[in-house]
Design a binder for these strands. Sequence first.
DNA 1: AAACCGATTGACTGGTCAGTCAGCCAGTGG
DNA 2: CCACTGGCTGACTGACCAGTCAATCGGTTT
Lengths: 202, 202
Amino acid sequence: MAANPKAPAVDKRRQILDAAIRVFARQGFHATRVADIADEAGVAYGLVYHYFKSKEEVLNELFSERWSLLLTAVEEADSSEASPRAKLETVAGFIVESYRHNPELMKVIIVEVTRAANSFGRTHLPEISRAYDSIAKIVADGQASGAFRRDIDAEFASMSFYGAIEQLLSGWIFELIPASDSDFEQAKTLVTATICDGLEPR
Amino acid sequence: MAANPKAPAVDKRRQILDAAIRVFARQGFHATRVADIADEAGVAYGLVYHYFKSKEEVLNELFSERWSLLLTAVEEADSSEASPRAKLETVAGFIVESYRHNPELMKVIIVEVTRAANSFGRTHLPEISRAYDSIAKIVADGQASGAFRRDIDAEFASMSFYGAIEQLLSGWIFELIPASDSDFEQAKTLVTATICDGLEPR
DNA sequence: AAACCGATTGACTGGTCAGTCAGCCAGTGG
DNA sequence: CCACTGGCTGACTGACCAGTCAATCGGTTT
């Protein structure tokens, strides 16, 4: 039981997924051929289809894998005892750290799924909007407890908050704004500061 | 000289562009074949290539046409005598009105260009970031005059502001949030209120 | 009325790729 | 030592479609 006798020496499936991250990030989903993924993974063309139903399913898997982490993070933040503002800070921090930890994966997720809700992302709209809803819930709770002002719709505030963060990531991805470690740190507090100081009663 | 003798009865070029808006909005750029555009326009396949170098140039033209209006609007707002906050309100208002006036075109621009900076939008990054810069300038001026607090980087604030608006449009586009007339009106003030009350000194 | 010219047509082609499939090979069990 | 099994291989194919081009049309000029 030390090792599954059927387990290959290296996990080729994982190897393919990791290669796909790099290639998708470099060329974009539409411009990458399945052969590019196989080459990058150092694996035969056909093996991609052994593990995945289609090219799209590879992207699918990458997205779901990470997005579920985000959903968990947001829901955990929500169910904590922290202040609404601290909860939002946690969410912003998680997303920024995700980018810092694996910028290529986040680039793929944002560019090819989240911001491509037309073509590919359409499939994932439900998952995507679950994140918006969870954030909206944090805001709504804050409003109920009096920590946030009530004249701004929670759903709108949630979209603004998430939109601001994603735009920042986009700025980093396309090198429109500086992306040093201190910029990442700043970003976490900045987004929350900007949004919350607008949400909190004066 | 009353009418150019070479001008056709109907402007076929325009007809093709308008058809492209509808088809791109419905199917997305990648999923639309040139034949779809021609059919929708009620025009022969080859005529598209008479007026445009490629399918991409059609999208190109749609984007540039409208983005230049946005740039003008932002720069005009900036050069007015209004308060920084009012300037931002003008910008937000212009974008919201653009969507209200022609949601299909705005959908195409956002989904296929602005939020697709990887594939197609890469070409337009300079134009796109000019808008961010102009907004940042408004913020920076506000900071210089003391209307805005100075501990939030103007570039970051600009990205947050624009990101918030675009996310709202995305929400309307994909029917994640309600899009009635009153929602549009609310949105204009909401975005500015959210961002500015966070930017203005307390 | 004949030459001219830009607008318009749509059949055709060349290239590209996603996905298939027939079989290979390494490790395991009999 | 042979049969078996499942991960693994990569040449091949069928479909699709952007872009080309030779031909036609309708109005203008000489």
